[in-house]
Design a protein around this nucleic acid. Structure first.
Lengths: 193, 193
DNA sequence: AATTTACTGGACTATACGGTCCCTAATACC
DNA sequence: GGTATTAGGGACCGTATAGTCCAGTAAATT
């Protein structure tokens, strides 16, 4: 072998993910990325080939770092079903409260022009679908949904996905944190009735 | 006076609105606009001054053409509260079913980088807030919400806004129309319980 | 019909974009 | 230690961007 890379791939992809998360795919320029990733053009193109390829890597990391953990948590039967669901929604509210107003990378991408790109859309939709499935899994442990059919649970899980996406999109605006919290709380509370 | 304008302002703003709606503010280039509006650069800059000024006009037209009618309909007591709310959600599903996968201009803008612009954000948030208020108004005529406090109604209206935003964002993806429909139906059905 | 007014079209500008290339630098292997 | 191999830095490229400008033109007023 020869000269080794002076940075960790995972580390710079994570930084790139954060930049994309804040400004979106189109809204992020190469200089934005270079500054955020703390590498230079040559290194970026040597390591990733293109802006889009880097974005796909960032989406993959988002899956690992955010979607998969959510799936795991939503499947963890040590907590009640609605407690697990509440955790997801409260987590989103807390992020906004702590100053993270970036929303969700998947939701932002869905709503943006880059969603027209096939390769991007497939990955985004896959992750969102898995989130819906994880919601459905947790719903099995919600008392009121106990004797619901699989179709009913699926419908409810889809409805929760709408709420979740909406929550994260609106978290980007300058809406008061109490607005987000009451909306999220009501969504979860409605599950119990 | 002298030579009159060869196009109707309202007409070209509507065309511009549709272009922005599909591709977002950042995703829309001047050539995109010129082609969609069927005017040339000179005319556009004479009439509107800048791309952003045109976008603000488009947002204003979106208010007139889409938000205000929704407000009116949601306040119309000839129909029951949940019927009115259902109409809004079903309308969004129908649009997607009929091939309109653009979602909602406000939601797309919220999720995009242009939401960082103050003038844009203010207008978008104002329209979204008014939609929430209109939801709250309709909730007054939903039997189950009859003896709820104003705060409870507000919370429910906010929760409905989450769902609505989520619905319109996800309508942009290639999700099956049945997925959207069952999610929307469940959201409305949950109001009755 | 002449004059005035202001809209139209498109050539033009400066800048920013994503991406390439190549020279230099640093390590591993022989 | 010399050589092969790969990474880093940054000048450079073509293109596309938002925005400007002005010559030509069409309507309204007189």
């Amino acid at each position: 072998m020869a000269r080794p890379r002076e940075f960790e791939i995972d580390e710079v992809v994570e930084r790139a993910m954060n930049v994309f998360w804040e400004h979106g795919y189109e809204g992020t320029s190469l200089p934005d990325l270079l500054e955020g990733m703390k590498i230079t053009r040559g290194s970026l193109y040597k390591a990733f080939g293109s802006k889009k390829a880097l974005f796909l890597k960032a989406l993959q990391l988002y899956d690992q770092k955010h979607v998969q953990p959510a799936e795991t948590m939503l499947a963890d039967r040590r907590l009640g079903g609605s407690q697990r669901l509440a955790k997801v929604f409260k987590g989103a509210v807390k992020a906004a409260k702590d100053g993270d107003r970036r929303g969700c990378l998947l939701c932002n991408t869905s709503a943006g022009a880059s969603a027209e790109d096939e390769e991007i859309a497939v990955r985004v939709n896959n992750q969102l679908d898995r989130l819906t499935n994880a919601f459905a899994e947790a719903l099995k442990d919600v008392p009121v949904m106990q004797d619901a059919s699989a179709a009913e649970r699926r419908a409810k899980a889809r409805s929760l996905t709408l709420s979740y996406v909406g929550l994260r999109v609106l978290a980007r605006g300058q809406k008061g944190i109490d607005v987000l919290r009451s909306a999220a709380n009501d969504t979860i509370a409605a599950l119990e009735r």
